[in-house]
């Protein structure tokens, strides 16, 4: 019984620790997909953002400068994706894979000199200041980026539902004909949505290198950027749901190590795969054969 409690607690703590990059990338992906385009390149953006953030923080001594630089690097890489996909006949899924490759390549290339040095990291906000217990204090030390991510989710949700800009993005994403009829600039909207979405993904990368695990190396991302695409599907293109999806995914990821700390070592590979099994099950349960998913932007290439 006690073991179950320990595991659940560890999963909760783990989900708070690892969910932030998922949150940022899925929000960015959500924005891009709302405009009718998909960007698998956010995996590359995440890695590049992590490297740029770490390098900038090391050079300037300011982790927040690092976060800003990561966002800018995402904006640029996403901008390239957005611009090239505006050309006729270019496949956005394939271009995403290309951007992923190029982004990680550039990050690894320029990141070599930053593997060894230690940069200044972001510090958590100590919500546990009232407690004398180190465990509690640690559990309640929250990364400011996590709060920023939640704020971004709320802002994005509000933006889609209550502002002209949000409405335009949704129209462009839902129906090219309607957008044309209204005279909306389709390519420009998608370009901006992709670039801004990638800027968010870049911040997710900054979290990886500047907060948790808080280090730059080539194995830093284990596919978080790609999995974000799946998270967007099961959060039904709703930014608020992205928060829950990221937290759940993070909790599933903490299952493997926390089971082992209570002595359950059997089948650890399978437990480590828990987040993916969980994702697959959710996809299957929520699938609606033959019809498109509720909330899915009509122009999305993966829906056709």
């Amino acid at each position: 019984m006690e073991a179950i409690g320990t595991v659940l607690l560890a999963m909760l703590a783990g989900s708070l620790r690892v969910s932030t990059p998922f949150l940022f990338v899925s929000l960015g992906e959500c924005l891009t997909e709302k405009s009718g385009r998909i960007n698998l390149g956010n995996e590359g953006v995440l890695v590049l953002g992590a490297m740029v953030a770490y390098a900038t923080s090391y050079e300037t001594g300011s982790p927040w400068a690092g976060v800003a630089a990561a966002a800018v690097s995402g904006l640029l890489l996403g901008g390239i994706h957005g611009a090239i996909c505006s050309l006729a006949r270019v496949n956005d899924v394939a271009m995403g894979i290309a951007i992923m490759l190029a982004g990680t390549g550039i990050a690894f290339f320029f990141g070599k000199p930053y593997v060894q040095p230690s940069a200044t990291l972001l510090s958590g906000i100590p919500f546990g200041f009232w407690s004398d217990n180190a465990q509690v204090r640690n559990a309640l030390s929250v990364c400011p980026l996590f709060l920023l991510g939640i704020a971004a989710a709320v802002a994005l949700h509000w933006c889609f539902n209550a502002t002209r800009v949000g409405l335009r993005v949704r129209i462009v994403g839902d129906s090219q004909d309607a957008a044309l009829a209204l005279g909306l600039p389709i390519d420009r909207t998608r370009f901006l949505a992709t670039a801004c979405g990638s800027a968010l993904a870049g911040i997710g990368g900054a979290f990886l290198s500047l907060y948790y695990p808080g280090s730059w190396n080539e194995g830093l991302s284990s596919g978080q950027g790609l999995m974000a695409v799946a998270l967007v599907v099961f959060s039904r293109w709703n930014p608020i749901n992205c928060i829950y999806a990221s937290l759940l995914f993070g909790a599933a990821g903490a299952l493997g190590p926390s089971l082992q700390t209570v002595g359950i070592t059997w089948g650890y590979y399978l437990f480590y795969a828990a987040p993916y099994i969980f994702t697959l099950v959710v996809l299957i349960i929520t699938a609606r054969g033959g019809k498109s998913l509720r909330g899915m932007p009509g122009q999305l290439s993966i829906g056709r």
């Binding site: 899924v93 999995m227 695409v229 599907v233 795969a273 996809l283 609606r288 019809k291 993966i302």
Partner: peptide, 20 residues
Amino acid sequence: RLNVNEVIASLVLSYIGLAL
């Protein structure tokens, strides 16, 4: 059959397959 997107399904299944 279920209209589950194949990009995501095949990606997730590749992680699961490697674990298996």
